[in-house]
Amino acid sequence: MKITVVDYGVGNLHSISKGLERAGASVQVSSSPREIAEARCIVFPGVGAFGAAMEVLRPGIDELRSAISGGVPTLGICLGMQVLFERSEESHGDGLAVLGGSAVRLNAPRVPHMGWNNVSDSDDGLFEGINPDDQFYFANSYVCRPTERVTISETEYGERFPAAVRKGAICGTQFHPEKSSAPGLRLLSNFIRISEETA
């Protein structure tokens, strides 16, 4: 499976690329929205700020929306999951809006939510082979509030919020699988399998 990793121009793309390669994919990095819209499989990594990321994507937003809504397997990680929704309290401007809802500021005594946390058990294929006791690495100040039934796993920190979402081939994780050791790498290989089944 050839996967296009979106480059917003900031942050670490190394880990996600290596994680996907280790899980059996070949990776191409791109910052061209039109090129991304033509990809067979897209990963939106989880680094940067909402406004800055959407700035990079905006020139090709219509093509991107129709590709993702049209069934191109997509994984959004952390911030990359938040851009799949309609908007965010973090910055002005629209998100990709392929999922209904928005990202809001996390309500907890200590923000960011930083470290390893449990997630609720999920029977979704994205979590296949993952033990209910396994923990994942989070680093987020915002959380998603979907307006459709897409949440497949939740976590708790100050409040309950989605740890992972899925709608067909559109997947999102609030945690960083590429930084979550063995369970995270397993999730990435599950995503690749889902992508291959969809393609």
Binding site: V10, G11, A49, P112, M114, A139, N140, S141
Partner: peptide, 8 residues
């Protein structure tokens, strides 16, 4: 923080 996010 504005460019990369506070978390890093």
């Amino acid at each position: 923080a504005n460019a990369f996010g506070s978390q890093c």
